[in-house]
Every structure is written in structure tokens, then in C-alpha cells.
Simulated assay, not measured.
Amino acid sequence: MLRIILGKRLKELREGSGVRVDDAAKALRVNHLTIRRMENAQVGLKVPYVKELLRLYGVGDAEIGEFISMAEQANAPGWWYPFRDALPDWFRAYVSLETDAQVIRVYEPHYVTGLLQTRDYARAVIRAGFPNAPEEALEHRVDLRVRRQALLEQPDAPTLWVVLEEAALRRDVGGAEVMRGQMDRLIEAAGDPSITLRIVPMAAGAHPATGGHLTYFRFRERELQDIVYTEVGLTSAVYLDQRPDVVTHLEALTRVSLLAAEYVPDPQTYLMNLRKEYAR
């Protein structure tokens, strides 16, 4: 995400100084596509290249030093680097977006959303998805999911909105004991002022978000536009950042959230009653 921010700033500085892409490329003795890729965050930011471009754009030494420091930070591995073998390529961007978001809004029709899963529940879900995985590899994936939840404990934690389908809560994952523990976690989350939890009962019928899981991200930095993530089958995902697409999905999230509040105005009480069913 920091690389995206710096790429956009490089583009702003180039355009503000009146330097064309071809001229910037000549200064670095590279193809013009390299400049485009740097500005679009498609490649890492090589410090010598960044210094040369900033000088070309008339940037002062103090600002260059600050920019270089941020570029080095952007090139450093993310916290999730030790888990890279457990992250499919198409999901790595999601973890980065999640880490840097100011607002996260999730619609989840199948399971409790990852940020609110207990360790036992997460293990059962992951085991279902990877039935042949060795125990060590499975626990590695569970560790990653639990580690992601640490962002909710940070001082600048994102605001989290979660809309869960009733089916996700009634799907028995891991047995009654695991489900009771998961209900306890959701009851706790429903009382957290930084988390808005909504539940859509079966009786609510069809709604605009029934197409499948989606997550909406909003960021503090002005350079970052809102992004929507949707899953495609079992092995890929789509990241949408064009305004018409984002607005359409955000509107669907808003509508289903309002629908859920109408049918289940008190999610905490609903969850307490559901927990009793798993106690039988």
C-alpha cells in the first residue's frame, strides 16, 4: 500500500514539474514502461532510481531524504512475509489492504468472517478447505488467520462492519463446543464500539449482496481510492477500484446492512439465544 502511495506521489511530482514519461525514462536509461510501472506500484522502488527522478523533478534534499526513507520502508517485507507460503498470490494483496484500511466492511454468506474467528473455528474451516494438508501446514495457516486479527487491538484499529448470513451462524463448524466458543466471540464483538455486527436471517429473503462474499476497504491516505474485493471460485479473486464498481458494491453492502438491522435489531441477544441451541 505504501508503494501505491509513493508511486502516485512520483507521478504527481513528475507531472507538476512538466517532465514527460519519456524524459524521465531517458534520465534513468530505462524503458518508459519502467516509469509507468513505478508510478503504478507494479515494481519495487529502487532507491537510486527514486533519487535520480526526484532530483529531475526539482525536489529538495530534505524531501528526497524523507521520500527515500519511505521507499525503503515500502520495499521491506510485510508482517505476513513469514506466512507467504500459506498465502495464495491472489490473497496477498488482501492482507495488505486489510492491514492499512481505515474502514473494513464485510458481507459473509458462508462462514464467520476471518477477523472474528476463534482459533478452533478457524482450524475447522481451514481443515475443510485443505483436508489433505499436514498438521504442521494446517497450524501455520491457522497462525496466519489469528495473526491478522491483531490489527483490531491496535490504537488505530480500523472500523469494522460485518454482515453475516444466518446460514453462516447455523453451519456447524467443528462441533457444538467450537460453535459455543465462536458464539461467545461474536457476542463480545457485538458489544465492541469499534465493530458493527449485523445478521441477515433466512426470512429476509433475497437482497443485492447475495452474489457471494465481498469486502470493501477505505483508507486514510488521499492517494488511495476505495477498493472492493470479491472472490471468484476457489482459486482466484477480483480487486475493483473503478468508482462505478465500488459504488455498486458499497450500495449493496449498505442495503443489506439496513435490511439486517430491520430484521435483527439486537444481534447480541440473537447470538445469545443461538448459543443456547449449541449448548443442547
Rank of each mutant, 00 (worst) to 15 (best):
R3P: 01
I5A: 06
L6P: 10
G7F: 10
K11R: 15
E15C: 01
G18A: 04
D23V: 15
A24V: 12
A25Q: 08
H32Y: 08
T34G: 03
N40T: 04
A41H: 07
V43L: 07
G44R: 11
V47Y: 08
V47D: 13
Y57L: 10
I64F: 00
E66Y: 00
F67I: 11
S69C: 01
A71S: 13
Q73G: 03
A74F: 08
A74S: 10
A76W: 01
W80S: 05
Y81D: 02
P82M: 11
F83L: 03
D85S: 14
P88F: 11
W90P: 11
F91L: 14
R92P: 01
S96I: 07
S96N: 12
L97C: 14
E98K: 13
Q102F: 09
V103A: 03
I104T: 13
L116F: 13
L116S: 09
D120V: 03
P131D: 03
A133Q: 14
E135M: 10
E136N: 07
E139I: 06
V142E: 03
R145Q: 09
R145A: 15
L152R: 07
E153H: 09
E153P: 03
P155C: 11
A157D: 06
L160Q: 11
E166M: 05
A168S: 07
A168C: 04
A168E: 04
L169W: 01
R170A: 06
V173W: 00
V173M: 03
G175T: 10
A176T: 00
M179N: 03
R185Q: 15
A189M: 10
S194R: 15
I195Q: 06
M202L: 08
M202Q: 02
M202V: 02
A203V: 12
A204N: 07
H207I: 06
H207L: 07
T210A: 06
G211E: 10
G212R: 14
Y216Q: 14
R218M: 06
F219S: 04
E221Q: 15
Q225H: 13
V228Q: 13
Y229M: 15
L234Q: 13
S236M: 07
Y239E: 14
Q242K: 11
Q242I: 08
Q242N: 09
V247I: 01
A252M: 09
L253S: 05
L259N: 04
A260E: 00
A261F: 00
P267M: 08
Q268C: 13
Q268D: 10
T269G: 06
L271V: 05
L271C: 02
L271Q: 02
R275S: 01
K276T: 13
R280P: 02
